[in-house]
Amino acid sequence: MAAQPSTSRSSRNLRVLGVAAWGLLGLSLIFIFFVAREADDYPGGGPLQRIFYFHVPSAWVAYLAFAVVFISSIAYLRTAERRWDLLAHGSAEIGVLFTSLVLITGPIWARPAWGTWWQWDARLTSTLILWLTYLGYLFLRSLTRDPARSGRLAAVVGIVGFLDVPIVHFSVRWWRTLHPSGPTPADPTNSSGLGAGELLAFFTALIAFTLLFAWFLAMRVRIGRLADEVDRLEIDAGRASRVLTTEATEVPVAGT
């Protein structure tokens, strides 16, 4: 959010955030593969269980990203400030990316664990619909050139799409759920039998993914600002060259 293109201070902050995110991600890999070994000897443990450390933090980041889209969309409609629109757009892109990761890692785990790639379960279905909704959101943004109009229309879809999510969730809850529930940021005590090493790995990965989201988002907003700047310069340059050509043609007219 704090990415002014010209200030070196915000670009240093951005670098610090990036180093922290990637560093913590590296640390979490060490924890995941060398510390969290409690379940290695159980059926379903070992490499298969390790998908969990990528799957759940991705899901958390996806929900966080779409919540940011929702809040930024409301803020944009209220203030019409460009920065909220950039924030919503960037966050939606990152949300779709992480939702894709959730939808890829989930079936890889489910095939050996459940014996099936896909289940029409509440959580799976609502995640899939979430993904479709925000793909539509990004598609809509690509259709309109005028940034103000594109921002307004996208904000409307961002708000309605997010409000739809809880309804989708409830509407599919009656289909019996297979999806395991474990520790979440909202309920870390629901450990579902995770050992100390596993909890360490999980929460490190969770924080690393969250920092990565913040870094991506800050980068994306910064790129958006720079793109705006380029557009502005191009318009100025176009105007200047038009002024020059009109002057050039006007000179002989004035001379006669």
Binding site: I129, L132, T133, L135, G136, Y137, F139, L140, L143, T144, R149, L153, V156, V157, V160, G161, D164, I167, V168, F170, S171, V172
Partner: peptide
């Protein structure tokens, strides 16, 4: 709502189902 959103874009017939179908899934289930 989504039809009026779609009417503001260059390809309304295309974008309306893309936006509306996911949002309408719960009511149709």
């Amino acid at each position: 709502l989504f039809a009026s959103v779609a009417a503001q874009t260059s390809s309304r017939e295309l974008i309306l189902p893309v936006l509306a179908l996911p949002a309408l899934i719960p009511v149709f289930i």
